[in-house]
Simulated scan of single mutants.
Amino acid sequence: MTEQTTPTDAALTGQPPQANASTLIHDGAGAYLLHLRDDIPGIWEPGAWSLLGGGREPGDRSLEETARRELREEAGLELPDLTPFSVEQARGSDGRTVPIQIFAGRWAGDPATLNLTEGVMLHWFRPEVMPRLRMAASTRDLIRRHAESVRRDSLGTATSTAAEGTNPAHQPGPPATASAAGPGPTEDDVWETILRLARRFDAHEDARGMGQTEQWTLQVLKIAEETGEASQAVIGARGTNPRKGDSHTWLDVHAEVADVIITGMVALARMRPDDAEQFLRCQLAEKSAKFLPAAPAADRPSQEEPA
């Protein structure tokens, strides 16, 4: 990182390394709690959306205690569990870097009920709208990485549950999103994994009382959302947006394209649970015939009766 995600002003005044901590708060359903900083002189990243956090004080026995104290002081917030997620680097105006310990914690309350003592406001945002916010590219990247890790864990749990023979319809799960590949499927069982995901998402939305047509509609719209994220990644990899700069890599583009493919496969499996693979093969043969030349005669199977 080249920018600090959640520095305090004290972080840039010569404190020892690893003397700062911030908390990445998510609701477990894809939204992240961001803090709008005051837009006044002397404040690091004035007027930007950031994370809650601050510098370690003499009474803090650990960086986790620092993170918890800052949450209490800045927002009157107590989280039951904090998990170390990463160590990021802040760059001060003097060019020096300071490591910041990032913790992740889950909370799903109303930020309007919190007693905010610093900054302007707290608000929930999903990662896909964050490119429109004024915030450090490093903060946006940090949240993107956390969201991807949560999706991988969710899909990995779905795959392992199905493999153990447990009915995924009886397990709580996220809404229909296939935006990250779960670990483990080989070429031979890709479609089996897709079908398991489709069944899991069907069960989740059945439990919410959604009709089949509504489920199909939302799943197809999800393809468009993933395509939009792939487009954003291309723009970020090319650096064509002067405000955002080089916000993505081509590896990010590859991952987003994979998300589009997986989401499309899940959509087809949800609409055609009995023959999705065969239907796709037929469509592939029909479409490819328009672009690929016919096989040479020598390569075609013989139609003659054997002698």
Score class of each variant (00 low, 15 high):
1 M>Y: 04
3 E>G: 04
3 E>D: 12
4 Q>W: 10
5 T>E: 15
8 T>R: 08
9 D>Q: 14
9 D>V: 12
9 D>K: 11
12 L>A: 08
13 T>L: 15
14 G>A: 07
18 Q>S: 09
20 N>H: 08
27 D>E: 06
30 G>M: 05
35 H>C: 13
36 L>S: 13
37 R>M: 08
41 P>K: 07
42 G>M: 10
44 W>G: 12
45 E>A: 11
48 A>C: 07
52 L>W: 07
54 G>D: 06
54 G>I: 03
56 R>C: 10
57 E>R: 11
61 R>P: 00
62 S>I: 08
62 S>P: 02
63 L>W: 03
64 E>M: 14
64 E>Y: 02
67 A>H: 05
70 E>Q: 12
70 E>K: 11
70 E>T: 05
72 R>E: 14
72 R>V: 10
73 E>R: 13
80 P>G: 03
81 D>T: 13
83 T>D: 13
84 P>M: 14
86 S>F: 00
91 R>G: 06
93 S>N: 07
98 V>K: 00
104 A>K: 10
115 N>F: 03
116 L>E: 15
121 M>Q: 13
124 W>L: 12
125 F>G: 05
126 R>Q: 14
127 P>C: 10
128 E>K: 03
129 V>Q: 15
130 M>P: 05
132 R>E: 13
137 A>Q: 14
137 A>S: 13
139 T>L: 15
139 T>W: 02
140 R>M: 14
140 R>I: 07
147 A>R: 07
154 S>W: 01
155 L>E: 11
156 G>A: 08
158 A>E: 12
160 S>C: 00
164 E>T: 01
167 N>S: 14
167 N>P: 08
168 P>I: 12
179 S>K: 01
180 A>C: 08
180 A>G: 01
188 D>R: 07
190 V>L: 15
190 V>K: 11
192 E>C: 09
193 T>S: 12
193 T>H: 11
194 I>G: 02
196 R>L: 04
197 L>R: 13
199 R>W: 05
199 R>S: 09
199 R>I: 08
201 F>I: 15
201 F>A: 15
208 R>E: 09
211 G>S: 12
212 Q>W: 09
213 T>V: 02
214 E>N: 05
214 E>Y: 02
215 Q>E: 10
216 W>N: 07
217 T>F: 12
217 T>W: 08
222 K>I: 00
226 E>L: 04
227 T>F: 06
232 Q>K: 10
232 Q>I: 01
234 V>E: 04
236 G>R: 06
239 G>S: 04
241 N>S: 14
241 N>T: 06
246 D>C: 00
247 S>I: 02
249 T>M: 13
249 T>W: 08
250 W>I: 05
251 L>W: 06
252 D>V: 05
252 D>C: 06
258 A>M: 11
258 A>P: 02
258 A>F: 00
261 I>V: 09
266 V>P: 02
267 A>H: 03
269 A>W: 02
271 M>V: 00
272 R>H: 15
278 Q>T: 04
280 L>G: 00
281 R>A: 12
283 Q>W: 03
284 L>M: 14
285 A>Q: 09
289 A>M: 04
290 K>T: 11
291 F>A: 14
295 A>S: 10
296 P>I: 07
296 P>L: 06
302 S>D: 10
302 S>G: 10
306 P>A: 05
